[in-house]
Design a protein around this nucleic acid. Sequence first.
DNA 1: ATGCCTGCAAAGCTTTTGCAGATGC
DNA 2: GCATCTGCAAAAGCTTTGCAGGCAT
Lengths: 139, 139
Amino acid sequence: MLQRQELRKAGLKVTLPRLKILQMFESSSRRHLSAEDVYKELLKSGEDIGVATVYRVLTQFEAAGLVIRHNFESGHSVFELDNGHHHDHMVCIETGDVIEFVNEDIEKLQQEIALAHNVELVDHNLVLYVRPIKESEKT
Amino acid sequence: MLQRQELRKAGLKVTLPRLKILQMFESSSRRHLSAEDVYKELLKSGEDIGVATVYRVLTQFEAAGLVIRHNFESGHSVFELDNGHHHDHMVCIETGDVIEFVNEDIEKLQQEIALAHNVELVDHNLVLYVRPIKESEKT
DNA sequence: ATGCCTGCAAAGCTTTTGCAGATGC
DNA sequence: GCATCTGCAAAAGCTTTGCAGGCAT
């Protein structure tokens, strides 16, 4: 029941929708879920939770730092549990798979670029759009 | 009247809305415009062009490679003339200003990362969110 | 002339909001 | 018990689409 603590620590009352949604992120095989994904999963589990609540809860989770919101493409947001370890993403344009990666050199270069422009780097968003290499195309 | 050629080359009939919109991108002091920006500018110029047309034209321009679509934050797309020179963006979170930059090292590192994951890098999106350094905060 | 364009209005999608009832503490 | 939370439905914001008329070639 650690999720109850997490919610309380975030200043959120422990309610069924919040618990269910938090548990979903902590147990799902997919780390990256859209609001619709979450909603559909809840329905599938037989929970009676409205879409509006899903959006509200996800927004609250984001504000509380429990979750990170991504805007990979346009259209809709994607959420992911914030485990404190920053990383960037690769998105496969064929399968939609999301792969996480970290590259310290890139992180450092971003800092340098900001510095060179005399501004402070607050955040960044890096997404690589990739495609599986077809055997026939291998060099 | 070079714009007429550009449109024709893109396989688009030369029409007033297309001309006006293309000219706006080529002459505006701002390189990055949203559909709404474009629409409002047209209204201000006394043009009688509908929003739907703005969206259609921008989408056609994107397909024709005349323009690049960005999804900086969520909500709405931002368009920019495609001059063939790839670059990434810094967005000031206070003023909304957009600064372009190029960093070959980062470009190279992205290629390496993709390669290391055995996928082909098709495209990428890098946005740095920055803030002006306040004098009082300077180290 | 004919086929591509446009404006208008209506609809589509994701997300937000108002409100009355329900629930956590 | 009281404040917070939820579900529903309605609305908002950006974008797309259907259709009938208009324009480029």
